[in-house]
Design a protein around this nucleic acid. Structure first.
Length: 440
RNA sequence: GGAGAGGUGGCAGAGCGGUCGAAUGCACCGGUCUUGAAAACCGGAGCCCCGGCAACGGGGCCGUGGGUUCGAAUCCCACCCUCUCCGCCA
């Protein structure tokens, strides 16, 4: 949520930003509510001042007259009615306020939807097969690497089992990503995957102020757990869709020292997605699933756009390296305003080549939110002048399990249906260089 | 499944209807003293909101939200959380 004073000062730019991001805001109503809100605060503070003075007089038993007590009661009633009015107003005000976007970077392309995203970088050439390449589903079923039928039987639609060498490939990918990040100074973390509501609101994973199962792609736990004293825990809990929110909320309500920054986290977690808005999309295989593993990069930096921009690019360099080390052809798209959510300042997607798609498929997404998330999560730092500032927060995928698996299986396939093991993953597979049919 | 204790400033910890934005200790900042440092002594400190160019003024903040009261850190209720012990369990 933006600061209302900032909003008033940058109204024109914000209006443009909202328009470009296709977000509808009733600006007049918002400003009107804010005016009323301020006026009410003044009135209430006035009344409280009177109440306090009245109570002070009454401290002395000698001055305790029924007139003063009556006055006190009247003040109390008046205050109560203003307070309920204020609460109503505040709720209306915040409902609009949470939707106000931040202004995207100047270099963000202005566009309607994903068709207006701009390819800014490309690496590697799609492989040319001198045979008819198989899809990863065919390859995996022949080599007993995935079991989708039983996945659906046991877990339901979008359920899957990963088997045999694919398990080691998947775990190897996770370790490979973690090791690279650790070498670059990131702190490895396995965060909780069950989180409270504020974590997801703070990271911007709800469209509104609270969870909406119709629009938010988040699982909410149906049953509560028990507290240490045996009572039922009543607060709502959710499953994360990425380690990002858990990592961002790590320092919620804390004040950091400037010298701690930048903070770099490499989070490994299982990720859960309800895919509620994607029904009917990518219905086959493991391209779009309800759960997978991912290594995620998250950085907190000083409140300096040059600095967070720089780190953002460094994080993307790491994604590039990961793709290149695995020799997966990929490209990078800069995401346009219309395909960007409210809180994002600048965003890139990374897509690896998937032969069966005859195109690229998203394998990563890197976004700089500036202080949009840190305001909600209340993560600040003290600068050298002892001023408190909200940190900038940037996140980027390192490696998500299923889509890298898809890309590897298909790009590395041989004519005989076997799959070459990417060199950097061989150590995880006892230096095996090929995955062939199982002997039964 | 069962039994207790408790959440107060950066930390520790008192307060148990008005004298409390809150004792005390440690940590912190400024000063005196000292060649310098330490010690000692003196002084100062928090956050948020509203108004104001500012000096400043007003309000709020003792886990969170309600309630009782002229008045709540203190009383009542709900919620959140932590700790200890027994049981069960990965």
């Amino acid at each position: 949520m933006l600061d209302i004073n900032y909003l008033r000062e940058n109204l024109k730019k914000l209006k443009t930003a909202a328009k470009n991001k296709k977000i509808v805001i009733d600006w007049d109503q918002l400003l009107k509510l804010d005016d009323q809100r301020r006026k009410l605060i003044q009135e209430m503070d006035n009344l409280r001042n009177q109440r306090n003075e009245n109570a002070n007089l009454l401290k002395d038993p000698k001055k305790r007259t029924s007139a003063l007590i009556k006055e006190g009661r009247a003040l109390k009633d008046k205050l109560a009615s203003l307070e309920s009015k204020y609460n109503l107003l505040l709720a209306q005000f915040e409902e609009i306020m949470v939707k106000v976007p931040i202004i995207p970077s100047a270099d963000t392309p202005i566009g309607k939807d994903e068709n207006d995203n701009v390819e800014i970088f490309k690496w590697g050439k799609p492989p040319k097969f001198d045979f008819k390449p198989k899809t990863y589903i065919e390859l995996a079923e022949n080599l007993d690497l995935l079991d989708l039928e039983r996945g659906a039987k046991v877990s339901g639609y979008r359920g899957y089992y990963v088997k045999n060498e694919a398990v080691i490939l998947q775990m190897g990918l996770m370790m490979f990503a973690l090791n690279k990040l650790i070498a670059k100074g990131f702190t490895p973390i396995i965060p909780p995957t069950i989180v409270k509501e504020f974590v997801l609101f703070g990271s911007g994973y709800f469209n509104g102020k609270t969870y909406n199962p119709e629009t938010d792609e988040i699982y909410k736990l149906a049953n509560a757990d028990k507290l240490s004293d045996g009572s039922i825990q009543k607060e709502n809990k959710f499953l994360i869709g990425t380690a990002e929110p858990s990592l961002l909320a790590y320092y919620a309500d804390e004040i950091l020292e400037e010298k701690q920054l930048p903070i770099k986290f490499a989070g490994f977690s299982q990720c859960y997605r309800s895919e509620i808005g994607s029904y009917g999309k990518d219905t086959k295989g493991i391209y779009r699933v309800h759960e997978f593993m991912k290594v995620e990069q998250v950085c907190l930096t000083k409140a300096d756009i040059a600095e967070s921009d720089k780190i953002h690019l460094e994080m993307i360099e790491i994604s590039k390296e990961l793709h290149q080390d695995l020799k997966l052809p990929y490209r990078i798209l800069q995401i346009c305003t219309g395909d960007m959510s409210a809180g994002k300042y600048k965003m890139f997607d990374i897509e690896a080549w998937i032969p069966s798609k005859n195109g690229y498929g998203e394998t990563g997404s890197a976004s700089n939110f500036l202080d949009w998330q840190s305001r909600r999560l209340n993560v600040r730092y003290k600068d050298s002048k002892k001023n408190k500032n909200f940190v900038h927060m940037i996140n980027n995928t390192a490696i998500p399990s299923p889509r890298f698996l898809i890309s590897i299986l298909e790009n590395y396939q041989n004519k005989d249906g076997s799959i070459a093991v990417p060199e950097v993953l061989r150590p995880y597979l006892n230096n095996q260089d090929k995955i062939g049919p199982k002997e039964k």
